[in-house]
């Protein structure tokens, strides 16, 4: 094993071009487990911690340009207004110690369906800017996940930025695990209302071979909200609509039975989380406090 310590981005790209098998390490929260337990012996480890800009972010007009190494704890603390879904998801990541080290780049690089950032990125809308010595490109988040623990990166490419659309409406993230802290998702659900475009986006984690959006559910809800004039009249979502949305969300799942949970439970839990997160976001959009019942419903 060799340890590469590029001092800057260009050097990192050159090293990755020269050693395509080099495995980037930043927070180390996935990779070091694999090394410690002898599950993986990369030929080269490439430390990205020295590249300062990867740990920085910039809030632009429409998007946040997020460095892949920005630790989850900083996202929670500093980007709660711009990226509320991702901030909530960041808070559910493992433990405080892990949140201090891990960043979204690691979730994307590993591309595990259980990565907590994915549903939030899918729901918010994002592009992953990747670069190699050959040049750079932006991969829409919807095209990024290509298989179980596989992503759209070429072997010489590194993740430079994640461009995430700033929230134009309420966002929520919810994750089911069998412990009240420090738990890997049995499944997770992200929801973002986009009042500017009168659309709804979702993201589902750990309930399919890759993180997925529940497109049919999104389309159904977008249409239902539109038809009912809900964006204008701000009335409550009819329970039947919420139910249908939740069921369609579960329909987007293709889960497995594993040691963390049954496929049937995962579908069920996605239904519940979809319904609840819709309630929370829509109440927030309407400016309704949680415990008001909102007798008026958009029809």
């Amino acid at each position: 094993m060799d340890f590469l310590r590029p001092a800057g981005w260009e050097e990192a790209l050159a090293a990755k071009a020269e050693h395509p098998t080099a495995v980037p390490i930043a927070g180390g929260t996935d990779l070091m487990v694999e090394i410690n337990f002898d599950h993986r012996r990369p030929e080269y480890l490439m430390d990205l911690n020295r590249i300062v800009e990867l740990g920085e972010w910039e809030v632009g007009e429409d998007t946040v340009r997020l460095g892949p190494s920005v630790p989850y704890s900083r996202i929670m603390e500093h980007l709660r207004a711009e990226l509320p879904g991702l901030a909530l998801a960041s808070h559910t990541v493992a433990s405080p110690q892990i949140r201090n080290r891990g960043g979204v780049g690691g979730n994307l690089g590993t591309a595990s369906p259980a990565g907590d950032a994915h549903p939030a990125l899918l729901a918010a809308g994002a592009e992953v800017e990747v670069e190699s010595v050959r040049g750079s490109r932006r991969i829409p988040i919807d095209d990024f996940y290509t298989g179980v623990k596989r992503n759209a990166l070429a072997e010489d490419e590194l993740i430079k930025w994640i461009h995430i659309r700033k929230a134009d409406g309420p966002q929520q993230f919810s994750k089911v695990g069998t412990r009240n802290a420090m738990v890997i998702a049995v499944c997770a659900f992200g929801l973002a209302l986009h009042p500017a475009t009168r659309t709804v986006r979702t993201g589902i984690g750990s309930a399919a071979p890759t993180p997925v959006r529940a497109r049919e559910a999104e389309e159904f809800l977008t249409a239902a909200l539109d038809e009912g004039g809900c964006w204008e009249n701000g009335r409550a979502v009819p329970p039947a609509v919420a139910r249908q949305f939740a069921e369609l969300a579960a329909g987007a799942c293709n889960p497995i039975d594993d040691v963390r949970g049954s496929a049937k439970y995962r579908r069920h839990a996605v239904t519940v989380m979809a319904r609840r997160t819709l309630g929370w976001t829509w109440d927030e959009f309407r400016g309704v406090r949680r415990d008001d019942n909102g007798s008026a419903r958009c029809a």
Binding site: H91, T92, F173, S174, G177, N180, A181, A185, M273, R276
Partner: peptide, 17 residues
Amino acid sequence: ADIRALPGGLSNTTHGE
């Protein structure tokens, strides 16, 4: 709701529902 005091804890699965 303080989610830390609810089932699911930090995973934000319920606000009392």
